[in-house]
Design a protein around this nucleic acid. Sequence first.
DNA 1: AGCATAGTTGCAAAACAACGCAACTAATTT
DNA 2: AAATTAGTTGCGTTGTTTTGCAACTATGCT
Lengths: 104, 104
Amino acid sequence: MNTEELKARARVMKALASPVRLKIVDELSRGERCMCELQPLFPMNKSTLSRHIAELKNVGIVGERREGVRIFLRLQTPCILDVFDCAMGVIRSEAKRQAMLTKG
Amino acid sequence: MNTEELKARARVMKALASPVRLKIVDELSRGERCMCELQPLFPMNKSTLSRHIAELKNVGIVGERREGVRIFLRLQTPCILDVFDCAMGVIRSEAKRQAMLTKG
DNA sequence: AGCATAGTTGCAAAACAACGCAACTAATTT
DNA sequence: AAATTAGTTGCGTTGTTTTGCAACTATGCT
């Protein structure tokens, strides 16, 4: 695997490496949302939220569609949700390992 | 989805959000390796490489087994490789979108 | 014990990401 | 044209990550 491909993959992973952005993705997994709908769910300045969304758009995870003043966001790549299953697998197996260590 | 779960997922993603660590995972996908085998592939100080490996171990993506002086590393969670397929999907679909924009 | 190989850790410097504020653009309404 | 709602961007601050260097621990060999 070459350097450029590794960098490209890392960019995608990096976009998902934030609780805020994962929450956005989770929200979008249940349907289209505009930023104004997401805002109440995130206790932060709208500029910050906008930048988080921009990061997801930049790597192609999230797509958009303008409707009047509002911009509706949607998941561009559904397999992202499978990634979460794997992440949970890692988390569970790590929890198990930790439990083993503690118990003996 | 609650905050703790989001944070846990983000930690896993963060561990994968680096070209260096992705290359380590890629290498381990072809079998066990010790750090001394990985080192020639990475143009960096061994302390830096060690820390990258530690990050993958910390979240439970990589496991280890000591054999004499050497510590053999292995992928703890094979589904990580599916994650890469998805990442490639995102990259490809984004490349396509970019091409559309350029062409018209 | 002394030495070699494998890997880790403390520390400080440099690079990078997240954040809020304020000022901005864009579509729509009055 | 002015106001409103939705979203973006420049800028400075603060926190986090990556890095090399040097010193360290751990296992095995002579």
